[in-house]
Nucleic acid binder design. Structure first.
Lengths: 221, 221
DNA sequence: GTGCCTTTGTGAAGGCATGCACAAAGTCGG
DNA sequence: CCGACTTTGTGCATGCCTTCACAAAGGCAC
């Protein structure tokens, strides 16, 4: 039943490379829209905002898909990167917590754009349940486990208040989910084998403030 | 303009460390709320989800604020990290683009919580102008430069559609802003001396999809 | 004051990522 | 068919980050 035998190179893709592949993919899609047939590593790197040697090394982890003297075929590279990232299949995503952020995420076009389909919206507040957002009806958190299993949800976005995040996390893991995108400002503790990615708006601002302060200190006086 | 030369004043705090300081700060605030007077590197590291040696090395970049045999004074360490991050002063933040995401950001409590004050909301759509969000009135994008200067805005959050982001970026930089938090799915090009941090929701999902796919492939069937 | 116990701060080693520089490989005009 | 040119793929050196392991430092009991 194995659809694809994992090659040695599959296991070896560095995290830093994986994190950049979506960037390349976006740049490639821009080129494809303009009808560009091929692109050099130099040009693609510029479009993605990285060093061209880094881009070539990143792509070399996927295979040897370039043509020396010419560059990379845009459509073919889009396909290869999409396949590597798993975007050729359909991913069912559930969003837990439909406050301001959850609603914004549900309406965010970038989610649906490639392979990601929002399969459920949940909230603990009975006032929210039944609301229609982005074409879906908000369901009560009690339905979480049954909906995850019924609709084959494999990725869960947590957009709840901090206090509820760990509990939601535990429940979705118990229901079989192993990929979580966490917007709540807490460190989630999860067992091995579960991937958590965190987006923390206030941390980003604090990092900016540090550099801003340093600029001010260095210039003045 | 040399940004990476360690000096006596600039203690050369590594970027990786800076990125974790807000994490420690959050963990410390949790401890402070529970009245904990001191904490060991072991416990604080566990609360922040990092290795304890890493935490000690991170904190050692700020100075020698621990007491051997005891640990760190929670309140004192909160103060020192806050000061280092520049959170003891008030930062005026403007949000450009009040679509779903911009509105959610404006209402997000985490922004205001520490030193960050939303000083302006902007949109290009005349329909939006005049709306009141989170206690502020949405202003037209034409006012951008004058408001930035008048209210001393030093950090700008870009939450516009992709197509408008670079133009907004250029304008705020021309108005003197050197710190930008970008939510638009584009690579912003900026001159030296300007810091851009990027939050990209769809990229995070794609990274999760990659790992999720690999987990599925790896299972022996 | 003394000795034991805890915990910090850091030297050193190992691993990973980055970017340079170039040989190999392929295209294209004639 | 050939030679000049372009661009990839990668060996290598460098530097940053992480982690281990431990000596030094301080508190505490008596």
């Amino acid at each position: 039943m194995t659809r694809r035998i994992p090659q040695a190179r599959d296991r070896g893709i560095p995290d830093a490379t994986v994190a950049r592949l979506p960037l390349y993919l976006r740049a490639l899609n821009g080129l494809a829209e303009r009808g560009t047939p091929t692109v050099s590593s130099e040009d693609l790197a510029a479009a993605a905002g990285v060093n061209s040697a880094k881009l070539r090394k990143d792509l070399s982890h996927l295979g040897s898909y370039g043509t020396r003297g010419v560059g990379y075929d845009v459509q073919y590279l889009i396909y290869q990167i999409s396949r590597e990232l798993g975007l050729t299949q359909d991913w069912a995503v559930a969003i837990v917590g439909v406050g301001n952020l959850g609603r914004a995420l549900a309406n965010y076009g970038g989610f649906v754009s490639r392979g990601f389909r929002i399969a459920g919206l949940f909230d603990a507040d009975p006032q929210m349940v039944g609301d229609r957002i982005a074409g879906l009806t908000v369901e009560h958190i009690d339905e979480l486990e049954s909906v995850i299993k019924k609709r084959g949800v494999s990725i869960v976005v947590i957009a709840t208040p901090a206090g509820a995040a760990q509990q939601v996390c535990d429940r979705v893991i118990a229901a079989g989910v192993t990929s979580i995108l966490n917007f709540a400002p807490v460190v989630l503790s999860v067992p091995d084998g579960v991937d958590v990615r965190k987006v923390d708006l206030s941390i980003e601002l604090q990092i900016l403030a540090f550099h801003e302060q340093r600029k001010a200190d260095g210039v003045v006086m």
